[in-house]
Design a binder for these strands. Structure first.
Lengths: 331, 331
DNA sequence: CTGAAAGCGCTTACAG
DNA sequence: CTGAAAGCGCTTACAG
């Protein structure tokens, strides 16, 4: 079955191809009778316009590009879920681009631009300010609307959607302080995520306000490396509470603590900052800041559609609400 | 900065646009000197051909479509990881399409075809045979190469990449039987995944060979629903071992068992059939069939590139090797 | 080895 | 309200 084209439709409906095109794009400009006739043929033939040809002619691909570092990480996948649902609703196709540490960032950006996306959702939060600046310059040179999705960059006024990570971490640190804990550690990652710096900032602020020394340490995302690391850590430090930038790190810590003879939450209190499924599958279950990851994806995609259709946008830096979910790991 | 086109390059290099095109697509047909000259201009101008225009003219979009049901599930995201890496290597762009229970499957297929993808990777394993047949017919009508990626459909001879789930489940059930267990349950899902039927088949075969009654029960993917379910289940059944189609279900079961006073592995032995990160973050850690999810994604994408470039393919039904990883949940 | 020209399947002013 | 025609930025026979 050769694909049906606009010519086939025009032929069968006995109109010009311009009319068929109008029926699809500006139906109000077509006489209702001919419109119905054409619509019927379209339906009978199962016609859908060739998206590539349409894209070339209209200079709009109705496609958005998602730039992310690692799909397989839980949070990234959930962001994608929200993005896809909204993209489908507004009839945008979605192209995926990976940009990790090893990528030639310039090359990736050139590719994204060459693919003619109408908008970009930037999910990579692992770039240093220099790289980030270069990437954003590339995008603005190409005049493509962009929204940072669960990523941040304060140097420029780029639209973004996230939660206030600094405040959230400040809040939960305060809660721990109020419950009487003093030796509160923050487990961050060795990688340089911009968001994690915000978390560190919020934690540090709360600790300093309480007259305490901030106790930040960095660990890997790898379970077996972390396990060794935590074993040593627990031997050498007195720990009353720990906040982890990722839930999986928190759960890993809980497991190591139990094996060393510590009880959570009786001896050590543990909290996560994401609220992924790991938090529910932990024993004890993990108290978390609940980051609405799906919503961040959905809202950022919606925001991007507004930019792409030149709607008025009043609020370009969206901070979604978050809450704290108390579970067993803090009793 | 207006995007540079092939005309700009041709003008700057003082050649025709046909020559520029040849330099990019058939460099061997161009005089080395002019080739170098053009290449230099391309580099200086940072030119990348408009992928849309190229796609229209060549009738190849160098884009593959990924059809999946839920990105945010762990296994799906990992498959995507493998797919993206290989796609990048072979310079294919990747478009993502969601097809879940509620989707109008025909409509999704029409969209995929309209988007002019050169090949399709089908990751959705939740369709019943009728729907699956319809989808595959749609694809073969459009004459687009397709590979089933971690999904199966036995009615037709469609290329696919997976592991032998039946054999794997048979193997691990045998191991449990040999260790002396008799009351071995298989926890499957309420959803109708084709792959899970294979797992059930392998399990059932092993049980019957041992002269035992297969004990399959179905549960949800939702943690709180499962928790209630498992609580009842443990009250009413004598369980010596449990095999779960998903790791998260296995971990959830372990947690409920401990809270009811059962010890894993002493009282009940538990195994998973995936080997995701959940297995490592469980306490005790989870013995698993290790399904090489990333590899399944990577190999299926590689296979698809062969079909797209009309290479000879001898083996269209690829079954990747798997192994069993013994961990604490089986002592 | 190189260029002029047609064509990919659409959209969109421009006439009428 | 409708059609003829140009054009989107490329590729690819076809001449030369």
């Amino acid at each position: 079955m050769a694909n049906t084209t606009i010519y086939d439709v025009a032929g069968a409906a006995k109109v010009s191809l311009a009319t068929v095109s109008r029926v699809m794009n500006n139906p109000e400009k077509v006489n209702p009778e001919t419109r119905e006739k054409v619509l019927k043929v379209i339906k009978d033939l199962g016609y859908r316009p060739n998206a590539i040809a349409r894209g070339l002619a209209s200079r709009k691909s109705t496609t958005v590009g998602i730039i992310m570092s690692d799909v397989s990480r839980a949070a990234g996948a959930q962001l994608l879920g929200g993005i896809l649902d909204v993209a489908k609703k507004y009839e945008y196709a979605v192209k995926l681009f990976e940009m990790d540490e090893d990528s030639d960032k310039k090359e990736v950006m050139r590719q994204v631009v060459a693919e003619q996306v109408d908008g970009i959702l930037f999910l990579n939060d692992e770039l240093d300010p220099n790289e980030m600046g270069m990437v954003l310059n590339h995008i603005s040179d190409a005049q493509i609307p962009v929204v940072l999705c669960n990523a941040c960059y304060d140097e420029k006024d780029i639209p973004s959607v996230a939660i206030d990570y600094e405040e959230a971490t400040y809040d939960i640190t305060k809660e721990l302080l109020q419950s009487g804990k003093k030796k509160i550690y923050l487990a961050s990652t060795v990688h340089k995520y911009a968001i994690n710096y915000k978390k560190i900032a919020g934690y540090t602020k709360a600790m300093k306000e309480a007259g305490l020394e901030p106790l930040v340490f960095r660990t890997s995302g790898d379970v077996s490396i972390n396990t060794l690391h935590f074993q040593e850590f627990l031997k050498n430090n007195k720990v009353e509470a720990i906040i982890a930038v990722r839930d999986s790190i928190a759960v890993n810590f809980i497991n190591v603590a139990f094996k060393q003879g510590f009880k959570v939450p009786d001896d050590i209190v543990v909290v996560g900052l994401q609220n992924t499924k790991y938090a529910l599958l932990s024993r004890p279950t993990l108290t978390c800041v609940d980051t609405p990851v799906y919503d961040i994806g959905a809202v950022s995609m919606r925001l991007l559609t507004k930019f792409m259709t030149h709607e008025d946008v009043t609020d370009t830096k969206v901070l979604l609400p978050y809450k704290i979910v108390e579970r067993e790991s803090t009793k």
